[in-house]
Each structure stands twice: as structure tokens, then as C-alpha cells.
Write a protein that binds this DNA or RNA. Structure first.
Length: 469
RNA sequence: GGUGCCAUACCCAAGUGGUAAGGGAACGGUCUGCAAAACCGUGAUGCAUCGGUUCGAAUCCGAUUGGCACCUCCA
């Protein structure tokens, strides 16, 4: 069964065919480490993780490269804005290197919490300055650059397909300059972008490197081109990111990469939609924003958030609210407790052979392969939990599904039931109280037991204890 | 001004030409002293509105209304 993915380039669903059957090249745009990632950022990383898992689930080998943008880029693509890293460093009185290191660690912690598979290569922009310089030199040699005001610019008029990904044509871009954004006078075309800065307003830049054009630092877009090609070759399979990257970042990456190599750079562009909050887009510049650690402090498990995002399709906007997160948590815990029950009844992982189980397995794979339809795949999970297939196959199917979901169902273990004597005594006391129709006392004891971490349910066979999850 | 997306029950959310998945909430039932949990069952004759294409439309086309995002750093 092959995977179908929605390709932003061409805007249609396409059957995925790798360049090299042995190994899929996957590049995902990583974080800029000047602040914590908010849960909207994380939604995209979860979707990319699901994509990677889906490929692995289909028995592809995947070489996954993710960058860490630890060199400043400007808040404006001209020479106008503030450097985010520098700004943050000033605010807290640390060096930009310290800032980068701190937020890189924070990001890796979030990724671990969310059960994101580790990239095969996690590369920092600052470790690849020489690769970027080489790439700029190639562009210069091919006549795609010019120097103005001390900076090296990419001339978009030298690359005929500019704007293809975003469906924009050059004429529109030139005329559609917004009047509330000032234009960098050094540019020949307002959409030209900087490859190398030597002359910024920010003379006190801490991160500077020598280059053929003078001491300075790279433009924003060049790092992704340089690093992806270094690790994945001049043409590779899949490039992911958030939809916001389509019109500028990815558009510019394509221009400079293909202008340098004269080859098609990436075959499939896959973009994740935004997470919205009550007021609209979740944004770092709004001030307060939701982080994973905030959710954890409120008592949510990172898997609650992962499950929440899996209930919407990656290409649809998803509105975050605590009410919806609560529902996700409740549902996830319900699933976990059903799995727990299977394990407590000695369910084992086995080969799936029954006709009904194989049907469920196929149904699940169809959901995954149809452009990662996780909401539907979760419906298959519910269907499986309710089905009459035997416990071993049921459990095995759940583990099979979780290869893609990544909800840590494999970490649920059979409980060793060791009930303290204290609890057993309380249960006996309550049973006696019930016999004597002293229901008030019985209810009190039940509350006491719950306080001690156990939940007692009366069944036809007598009281049943379970540990609070 | 340009580009793109969306509108499905009380809530979240699939479905993209063949007669509305799933989950939560709600309600009813089984069980119980009562609960909780579990299990079973109920729920949109209709998918923003209007028109069109079609044997057939939530799905395609057009118009209208409402909402969102991007074109400025953000996933």
C-alpha cells in the first residue's frame, strides 16, 4: 500500500514515490531558539512526527534532518527589524550563545515529552556557516546575487519559477507591496532577500564570521538550503513546515537551492495548519503564550496534548481550548485504562491472524496512508477496543496502531497487584458494614480507600479494587 | 490590493459524487443500598444561504453571507 500525501507544490494529493527506495530523505524546519516553543509550534512537530512514523510504519527507512536556527535572523526580512536572538539576550543579560543553548535544550525536552522520534541529524545553523558560504559562492558564480549596501542579496528576477510554491507571480509581488511595511532601499526587487549581512544596523552583533564578502552573518533562508543539501543531497523527497513558511521562507529556499544546483530540489512539500486559540492565531509576539510546561504544570500529560492534536487533521486549523483538552485527556485515559485491563488479564503481543483483526489492521493503514487521516485512524482504534476479537490480538493491534500514533501505549505494563493489608482491611470492614446495612459507614470507608489511592467498585462478583491512574 | 483556507448535531471532529465515521456532553436502560465505573441503547431526513450540473451532491460549479490565516519575525 502506498502513502498519499497532499503536496503544496501543485496543490493536490499525490502518491508518494521516493527517489531512492532504500531511504526517504525528510527535512523538517526546526525551531528558532530564542524563546520557548508554544503548543502551536509543537502541533507542527507532532504532525511531522506522525508523517515520519507513517513512513517507518510502511517499512521505509527514513533519514530525518531537522535544523536548529541558533543564529539571529531579523524580525523583518529587510534590514529593519530587530534581531530576535540579540533582543532576547539583551533582555535577560546573557550572551546569544547562552540563549541559544538554553532554548535548544528546552525544545529537546518538549520533543522528548511529546514522544517525538529523534531526528537522525539535528543540525545547528552556527555549525554550518562554511556550508552556507559555499552555497552563496555558487549562487554568486551563477549570477544570482548582487551586493548592495554591504550585504549580499539574492536577485529573484534571475530565477524564473520564483513564487511557484505559493502560487504567486512576480508581477503581483512587485505591485502588492504593503504600504505599512518599509522597503529596504538596497534591494532591486522588494522581494529580494539577504544571503549574507556585513552591514547591519546592529553593529554589536555577537555572532559574526569571516566571509569573502566581509565579516558578518548569514541571512535567514540560506541555512535550510545549505544543511538539507549537505545531509540529504541536492535533491530529496520531503520538506515539511508550517503553512506560514510557504510564501517567504520556503519560496526563498527553493529559489536559492534550485538556482545553485539547476536541479529540482524537493519532490513533496507538506505543510501543517495552525493551531488557533480563542482569539485567533497563537503567536509568540502576543506576549503570553501556551507552552508544554504550562500544560504540565496544570496537570496535563504531554500525551494528552498529543492525543488532542491527533483528533484533528493536520491540514485543518484546530482551535485550542482547555475544555477540548480536557475531553482529549478523558478520552485518552479511557483508552489507557482499557489497555491496562487487557494487560492485567495477561494479554500478550501475538501475530495477527484472525480475519476480523486483519480487516481492522487494513482499515487503519488506509487511514494513515490517506494523507495521514488520524481522526479516522482513532475511530478505528475505538472500533478495535469495542470489538470481540481476542485480547491478545486486540492488544497487538493497539501496539501496531501506536507505531503511528506515538501515544506511548507500549509503555503500559501489567500491574503487579500488591494491595497493602491496610486497604484489604478497609475493604473487609466496608463489606461488613454493607451487610449490616450501615451504608453511611460503607460510603465513608469507600472515600477513605479512594484517598489512599484505590478505587473500589461493587460488581456482581463482589468489590473490585483498582489503582488510581 | 494579492494568495489560500474554512462553515457538518449542544461541543470537538471525519467524510471530497452513491445516500452523514468517531469521541465528549445529554437522555434511557442493565447493574447497585446509593454511587462510580462498565456495558447496551437513543440522537443531524440533513451538512451556512440561494441557484446550477447530475439518475444521484455535504461532496462539483456559480453567487451570497459569515469566519480564519498568509503576503512583516513566528509552526
Amino acid at each position: 500500500m502506498s502513502i498519499y500525501l497532499y503536496n503544496t507544490m501543485g496543490r493536490k494529493l499525490e502518491e508518494f514515490k521516493p527517489i531512492n527506495e532504500q531511504e526517504v530523505g525528510l527535512y523538517t524546519c526546526g525551531p528558532t531558539v530564542y524563546n520557548y516553543a508554544h503548543i502551536g509550534n509543537l502541533r507542527t512537530f507532532i504532525f511531522e512526527d506522525v508523517l515520519k512514523r507513517a513512513l517507518l510504519h510502511s517499512n521505509y527507512k527514513v533519514k530525518h534532518v531537522m535544523n536548529i536556527t541558533d543564529v539571529g535572523h531579523l524580525t523583518d526580512d529587510g534590514d529593519d527589524g530587530d534581531d530576535k536572538m540579540t533582543k532576547k539576550a539583551k533582555e535577560v543579560g546573557k550572551s546569544v550563545w547562552e540563549i541559544a543553548s538554553f532554548y535548544t535544550d528546552a525544545f529537546i525536552n518538549d520533543a522528548t515529552d511529546l514522544n517525538l522520534l529523534k531526528p537522525n541529524v539535528l543540525c545547528k545553523a552556527t555549525d554550518h556557516i562554511s556550508d552556507m558560504i559555499e552555497l552563496i559562492k555558487r549562487l554568486e558564480k551563477n549570477g544570482h546575487t548582487y551586493i548592495s549596501g554591504g550585504n549580499v542579496y539574492f536577485s529573484i528576477d534571475t530565477y524564473k519559477d520564483y513564487g511557484k510554491l505559493a502560487n504567486q507571480n512576480l508581477d503581483d509581488l512587485i505591485t502588492a507591496v504593503r504600504d505599512d511595511v518599509s522597503v529596504d532601499d538596497n534591494k532591486k526587487n522588494s522581494k529580494d532577500f539577504v544571503l549574507w549581512f556585513t552591514n547591519s544596523k546592529f553593529g554589536e552583533q555577537q555572532m559574526m564570521w569571516d566571509s569573502p564578502w566581509g565579516r558578518g552573518y548569514p541571512g535567514w533562508h540560506i541555512e535550510c538550503s545549505a544543511m538539507s543539501m549537505k545531509y540529504l543531497g541536492e535533491s530529496f523527497d520531503i520538506h515539511c513546515g508550517g503553512i506560514d513558511a510557504i510564501p517567504v521562507h520556503h519560496t526563498n529556499e527553493i529559489a536559492q537551492s534550485e538556482a545553485a544546483t539547476n536541479k529540482k530540489w524537493v519532490n513533496y512539500w507538506v505543510h501543517g495548519e495552525f493551531l488557533l486559540d480563542e482569539t485567533g492565531k497563537m503567536s509568540k509576539s502576543k506576549g503570553d503564550f501556551l507552552t508544554l510546561s504550562l500544560l504540565k504544570n496544570k496537570g496535563y500529560d504531554p500525551m494528552d496534548y498529543r492525543f488532542f492534536t491527533l483528533n484533528g487533521h493536520y491540514r485543518s486549523q484546530l482551535r485550542f481550548s482547555f475544555e477540548n483538552l480536557d475531553t482529549a485527556r478523558k478520552n485518552r485515559l479511557s483508552i489507557v485504562s482499557k489497555i491496562q485491563e487487557l494487560l492485567d488479564n495477561n494479554a500478550q503481543q501475538v501475530k495477527i491472524v484472525s480475519e476480523e483483526s486483519i480487516a481492522l489492521q487494513n482499515e487503519f493503514d488506509e487511514c494513515v496512508n490517506n494523507n495521514l487521516n488520524m481522526p479516522m485512524a482513532i475511530a478505528v482504534l475505538w472500533k478495535t477496543l469495542k470489538s470481540n476479537i481476542n485480547d491478545n490480538e486486540k492488544y497487538s493491534l493497539i501496539l501496531y496502531f501506536d507505531e503511528v500514533f506515538g501515544l506511548k501505549f507500549n509503555e503500559i505494563k501489567k500491574r503487579e497487584i500488591v494491595i497493602p493489608n491496610e486497604i484489604i482491611n478497609l475493604v473487609n470492614l466496608r463489606t461488613n458494614a454493607k451487610k449490616e446495612k450501615d451504608f453511611k459507614k460503607a460510603d465513608e470507608i469507600r472515600a477513605e480507600i479512594e484517598k489512599l489511592g484505590y478505587i473500589l467498585k461493587d460488581t456482581a462478583k463482589g468489590p473490585v479494587l483498582s489503582k488510581k491512574l
